[in-house]
């Protein structure tokens, strides 16, 4: 489902899952600036119609999972992932895609990226605080459509005390150095997951989100072909 506005420019519909946690407006506005029709929504129909889905998250892993479930959004999120449409998890939204987190060992994650969210290793060298709350350089391990045009070592804004440790190291597409090497971004098929906040990372983050919007638009036009054939 795409909106056409202005004439000739296809704006993909991106559903930003709104399940009552902190600040999700920045992500929505940043996606709109990137060319999307971005909607904050808890409506499974909108999520089902969207060309791409964004799962934001802030705060504690367990609290976010609880909120996602009580909003009835766990299944729509999983459906979106399995549909093959572009899916983006941000910060705790990224962490929720894993199986579990050391932050709340009893809480069950979405299990999209097999692995565990672990505390940033303690005893960091002098001067390093936990959480990491700062801009840091991304070391791109594997090229990804979302990294196009960001430069070799883009700077992004991080706020986190834990990071993702996947069972399969090959899904790590970017890392960052903070006392040790922390995993900063992951790719599993149609799912991209970022520990950092692109919506708070100035022009670099906006470029990454624009790339995501473009991927959504491409995916929409590809999947739209059968529909057009049917209607024609």
């Amino acid at each position: 489902m795409t909106a056409v506005s202005p004439p000739g420019v296809v704006r993909p519909l991106i559903a930003v899952l709104d399940y009552g946690i902190g600040n999700v407006h920045s992500a929505q506005k940043a996606l709109e600036r990137g060319g999307a029709d971005a909607q904050l929504t808890a409506d499974p129909e909108v999520i089902g119609d969207a060309d791409g889905v964004v799962l934001p998250g802030v705060g504690a892993f367990g609290a976010c999972m609880d909120a996602l479930r009580s909003s009835g959004l766990e299944q729509p999120a999983l459906d979106a992932v399995s549909s093959g449409r572009p899916f983006l998890g941000i910060c705790v939204g990224m962490q929720m895609l894993f199986d579990r987190s050391e932050e709340n060992p009893g809480a069950r994650g979405l299990g999209v990226i097999p692995g565990t969210i672990r505390w940033i290793p303690t005893e960091p060298p002098a001067g390093l605080k936990i959480p990491q709350m700062q801009w840091n350089r991304l070391d791109v391990v594997t090229a990804d459509p979302l990294f196009v045009g960001l430069g070799e070592e883009p700077w992004l804004y991080f706020v986190h005390s834990l990071h993702g440790v996947p069972n399969d190291p090959a899904v790590v597409v970017a890392t960052t150095e903070y006392g040790s090497t922390l995993n900063a971004a992951f790719r599993v098929d149609n799912v991209f997951a970022a520990q950092f906040h692109p919506e708070k990372s100035s022009t670099t983050g906006l470029a990454l989100l624009s790339n995501f919007v473009e991927v959504c638009a491409r995916s929409a036009s590809t999947s739209a072909v059968p529909d057009n054939e049917v209607s024609a």
Binding site: N23, H25, S26, K29, Y157, K200, T203, L206
Partner: peptide, 8 residues
């Protein structure tokens, strides 16, 4: 500000 400025 939140709608137009993309730094924390």
């Amino acid at each position: 500000v939140a709608a137009q400025v993309y730094i924390p």
